[in-house]
Design a protein around this nucleic acid. Structure first.
Length: 497
RNA sequence: GGCGCUAUGGUGCAACGGUUAGCACGCGGCCCUUUCAAGGCCGAAAUACGGGUUCGAUUCCCGUUAGCGCUACCA
């Protein structure tokens, strides 16, 4: 919690559409959302698309989808910075007018994109002990260069320091001489006098305009913060509270990137992770409720979230732990919440039947919603990812399924198997009642009569009716499949194998 | 190179001057067992290093080392 809670809390998540929704960004969004919810505040979504060159508008949809999947909802927006250009230009002229900014005529191409870019100065070496040049020679006024359109730079105070208190990192200070005269507004192109706003100006102007009270963002912005604090003051505004959250690293402790595996949130959705599991995992990376609790559902997360629980150390994205969370949720999620996810997966695999929907009439084989629910419940302890319901569990939803070679090799190698399965089929076909115990007793009787261990029959039978060595307990499986299917599959196995 | 931030098992977090340094993932073993999971029990595994401060440091301070971040007319 924070000390100054006068007025309602207003936070924002401000992604840039230069890529997909990265897990780091997703976590930042999550923290903002959780904070907004637990403070009964407002969550705002803002798209920071001021760089026309890198910006890919079509990426916004994916970002929004990713947020929605994670359950991160916003109350206002999305606002697009590309549509707020006037606001930034007004702010820039205000800064120009009050002496906080100046026009810079240094040629843009000279510095653009280069590692060695130094404002206003020529080839200053980057390393080598030479003092870095942070002051632009245009800052004290310079005659306009014909043919060169100026950019607007901030006139950073000479000497002194800019300090601020970060909610998670504490007191932080930077010597002003370390801060360069950063660009506020790009120089104009074509007949435009000025171009788009730069990041620093845009965030500050918007955060003021949107009355943001808490800026929760990645720690990579820690070093940018003094620039922004300076801007707030120059604009005559009070800075918000800053809360920087640690970065997410790959297994090698390097910044998380593609080579560490998936970093796109939508890829996890595609792979079949449950959003609640993914979120639970993500929120615990860099945040702790203060004790050893780990399994936290949405309501608990909202209730227990606090900025004080945010860690200061970068964390490694652990795929194994994510997988564990997913299996936990697959098992513990209330069945009604799991069913829609399974339905979606089956539809995608063309295995879904409308009679399994809630309230629908049973199909010709007697299967209805209750059967579907029971079956999913039976299957879920062994499922690792959602698509497993359509692949690994295929034999439960379709009569068209393969018999795995590895399963035959493992459980059909005993020469007595065909004979056993034939007797099993007859015994099961003769059962007047079809339930777990009936199947159990009948099967064990068959094994006993044949003088083999029940396990031999059970395992062989499993392969015959679901095609795999791995499945739920056999007699439960038989009940889920139904008498007719089980007998049919057994006899078909004897015919074709 | 400069500036900033960080430092508890392999990984994520607890312990916020006094604990046999706790939990979880992963790893190894055992139990359960009808395959595979799940579950239960047990085990290996950590305070980066060096100085202080203190009766007492994982905890506070300084240095070293390491990692990360920023150092763009990117965000």
């Amino acid at each position: 919690m924070t000390d100054k809670t006068q007025g309602a809390v207003r936070v924002r998540f401000a992604p840039s559409p230069t890529g997909y929704l990265h897990v780091g960004g997703a976590r930042t969004a999550l923290f903002n959302w959780l904070f907004a919810r637990c403070q009964h505040g407002t969550m705002i979504l803002r798209i920071e698309d001021t760089d026309a060159e890198r910006n890919k508008p079509e990426l916004v949809t994916g970002i929004l989808d990713g947020l929605k999947w994670l359950g991160v909802e916003w109350d206002e927006g999305p606002f697009y910075q590309s549509q707020r250009t006037e606001l930034y230009r007004e702010a820039a002229s205000k800064l120009l007018a009050n002496g906080s900014a100046f026009l810079c005529y240094c040629p843009a191409e000279k510095y653009a994109g280069g590692d060695h870019a130094e404002p206003g100065q020529d080839e200053e070496p980057k390393g080598g002990g030479a003092r870095r040049v942070t002051r632009c020679s245009c800052r004290d006024g310079k005659p306009s260069t014909p043919g060169v359109k100026p950019a607007v730079r901030f006139k950073v105070p000479l000497g002194g320091a800019t300090k601020f208190t970060d909610v998670v990192f504490g007191e932080t200070g930077f010597a002003n001489d370390e801060i360069e005269d950063f660009v506020l507004l790009r120089s104009g192109k074509g007949d435009e006098e000025f171009g788009q706003s730069m990041y620093q100006l845009g965030v500050v102007v918007d955060d003021i305009d949107m009355r943001i009270t808490h800026v929760i963002r990645g720690a990579d912005h820690l070093s940018n913060t003094p620039k922004q604090v300076l801007l707030y003051r120059a604009l005559g505004a009070e800075p918000p509270l800053f809360a920087h959250v640690p970065l997410i690293l790959g297994a090698d402790k390097k910044r998380l990137s593609k080579r560490h595996g998936a970093t796109d949130v939508n890829m996890y959705r595609a792979e079949g992770y449950l959003p609640e599991a993914f979120r639970n995992f993500l929120v615990l990376l860099g945040w702790s409720p203060g004790n050893d609790d780990q399994y936290l559902r949405t309501s608990e997360l909202i209730e227990r979230f606090s900025l004080e629980g945010v860690s200061r150390t970068n964390g490694v994205f652990d795929q194994d732990k994510l997988a564990w969370f997913n299996t936990q949720y697959l098992q513990k999620l209330p069945i009604e919440e799991l069913l829609p996810e399974v339905e979606a997966v089956l539809k995608r695999a063309n295995l879904w039947r409308e009679e399994w929907a809630a309230g629908a009439a049973p199909g010709p084989d007697g299967r209805d919603h209750a059967w579907f629910s029971r079956t999913v419940d039976l299957l879920r302890p062994r499922v690792r990812l959602l698509p497993d319901f359509a692949t690994w569990s295929r034999a439960f939803f379709s009569d068209d399924f393969p018999i795995e070679q590895a399963a035959r090799d493992k459980f059909w190698k005993d020469p007595k198997v065909p004979e056993l399965l034939a007797r099993q089929a007859d015994a099961l076909a003769a059962l007047p009642e079809w339930n777990h115990d009936a199947c159990d007793h009948a099967s064990r009787a068959v094994a006993e009569a044949a003088g083999v261990k029940a396990g031999l029959l059970i395992n062989a039978c499993r392969v015959a009716i679901v095609g795999q060595a791995v499945a739920p307990p056999l007699f439960d499986t038989m009940v889920a499949l139904g008498q007719e299917r089980v007998v049919t599959r057994l006899r078909k196995t004897l015919r074709v194998n």
